[in-house]
Nucleic acid binder design. Structure first.
Lengths: 339, 339
DNA sequence: TTGTATGCGTTATCAC
DNA sequence: GTGATAACGCATACAA
């Protein structure tokens, strides 16, 4: 890699002159500036980023800690983060906690040494269930901004970007009741332990209460793939009066549709199905599932923006931004009526 | 952030003594070593990674450039990369090319300044279609190792990790012919432009030729979501003799199952369906789709291992590793016979 | 307009 | 056993 020193030697001038020339300093003559720049491009000179970072004590890098990236929600958020970070001249270092507290702690530790200027984090299932917050508080104490999104630990004072979990499920449930005239709405859940799961269930329960209907919940936490199908099938078979299914994740709704069809239920006439979903969710189901579409990409964008603002001005006080979801009804994707 | 200098000042000893003490140098007395370490932990000292990087001229960081991360294949590969990198004390900086050559070039450019010790890259659709390789060759010339996976440009001399696209599809096709006794196998494709798509199609064509059967291909490149369903539906309706469908991506196979059911085809008795798939693919289809399971996670692991070896010894000559896929037949996931 | 000197935080070499 | 000094590559305050 070409360095300033090498350029200086070749041109018989000092290192600082070269540096200034490349940075378009006014104190450098037109002539030498051109000479310097020509040689620089010729030798494909690029300032060593590490050296610059050491000098300025800024890494222009954001640490992103995600529970997983195979969940399409987090994948989309990551996309939003990456795009916004790049647009603002930041790189991102990605760590996956794999839903464990231990890896999350370790990642924070390892990057809290000047490697990154701030963190964007969705806490691991374990961290959230056990309400572990010390590692995050410790990071904040070192004056490194942290932004939490989606999976949030409330006990920590930092910027937060969350989904309107309660609201969106409340609205979806109410839509099933009021618009679809459903009375026996089954909630299917495999994330009951998470705060987002709890909020979604509360939204569902509240809506049912407000309309004097009874809640019924099929909990699939820790169920294997085969079990999910079987349990949904068995439940539907045993409860033929179920006329709507609300899934609070991005998988079980589609499974429910498949099981309902197998049982001969007509969708959507006999049974409405709503789930959470992302880019391709609706393409994969037939008949189309209605989805609560979380604006994952947007969450990534907003999170990054907030964090960068916080990095630039650490006196900013913490905010919590709620990103509203969108209810995409199955009708709206019925592009071709014959299907 | 605590520095060596601060520790030294507080202990009234020199910076170099502190440094040696922390690095367990033999030339330091038991006594001072303990004093130093105690203060260090007390003040939560961590060596500044940037300074170390400048000193050693190594970033211990890998640049990962992916076309997208919302495709589950790349998400799983990323998972494998992250895990292996971390296990070897490397961080990863992730860039998403969004399938554009321009962003890919830019990412390589921006990170080729000491930020990373090497690259793992799956080239963008555009780069591959247009056979653009200059940016990669330029990077290699700066003595920065590059490893390409999945989407490979053959014209470049570097380590490569690829899927057995031709073989796996050949084998799957032959299975449909020999085991399932199918004679009219439709190939559904939305990635015909990519090298992996071409190879998969060749595998299919070769198998059919070898068994004196005729190929029929439904090309869905650039089709919108609604169009995909319609085109598959229309094709199946117009060609009632189709007795097997082979999808070479992770979406259209499931769509095909749904459309076939809508047309009253019995699966798998009337129609076999095989697609590419990952973690949750089979859960989402009913009846179960058979999938060619690419070992994405493993590819990530192997890629990272190879790259790190290459970083440590740049004289190593380039290798190409083929990671075999696995044919997961639908029967093997029929955990519950009643379904 | 150009050059010299200094420092970012660390490690390594060499004296003492 | 300890410390002074230099160096990584860059940027900048200060001289000339």
């Amino acid at each position: 890699m070409t360095t300033l020193k090498e350029l200086a030697a070749l041109l018989n001038i000092s290192v600082s002159t070269v540096s200034k020339a490349l940075n378009d300093s006014h104190e450098i003559s037109e002539n030498t500036r051109i000479r310097v720049k020509e040689l620089a491009t010729k030798l494909n000179y690029k300032p060593n980023r590490i050296a610059q970072q050491l000098k300025t004590n800024k890494s222009k890098t954001i640490g992103v800690i995600l529970p997983t990236v195979t969940n399409p929600f987090f994948a989309e958020v990551l996309h939003g983060i990456e795009k916004t970070a790049n647009a603002n001249d930041y790189d991102i270092i990605v760590c996956l906690s794999n839903e464990t507290l231990h890896k999350e702690q370790r990642s924070l530790e390892l990057l809290s040494n000047g490697s990154v200027d701030g963190f964007i984090i969705a806490v691991a299932r374990e961290s959230q269930v056990e309400q572990q917050t010390e590692h995050i508080k410790a990071t904040l104490k070192t004056d490194t901004p942290v932004l939490m999104f989606d999976r949030v630990v409330h006990d920590v004072d930092c910027n937060k970007v969350i989904v309107d979990d309660f609201q969106s499920v409340y609205a979806a449930t109410e839509h099933l009741i009021v618009h679809d005239k459903r009375k026996h709405i089954l909630l299917v859940s495999n994330i009951e332990e998470l705060s987002v799961g709890k909020l979604r269930i509360e939204g569902y329960t509240k809506a049912l209460n407000d309309h004097k209907l009874e809640a019924q919940i099929l909990n699939l936490d820790h169920a294997g793939d085969g079990d999910v199908e079987r349990k949904i099938y068995d439940y539907l078979e045993a409860h033929p009066n179920v006329d709507a299914i609300l899934s609070i994740d991005h998988i079980t709704g589609i499974v429910a549709i498949n099981m309902a069809k197998k049982l001969g239920r007509a969708i959507p006439s006999d049974l409405s199905v709503v789930g959470f979903g992302y880019e391709h969710t609706q393409v994969l189901s037939s008949p189309k599932i209605s989805i609560i579409h979380q604006k994952a990409f947007k969450m990534g964008e907003i999170s990054t923006k907030l964090l960068i603002d916080n990095i630039k001005d650490k006196t900013l006080k913490s905010r919590t931004v709620v990103v509203p979801s969108e209810l995409n009804l199955s009708e709206s994707v019925e592009v071709h009526p014959q299907f």
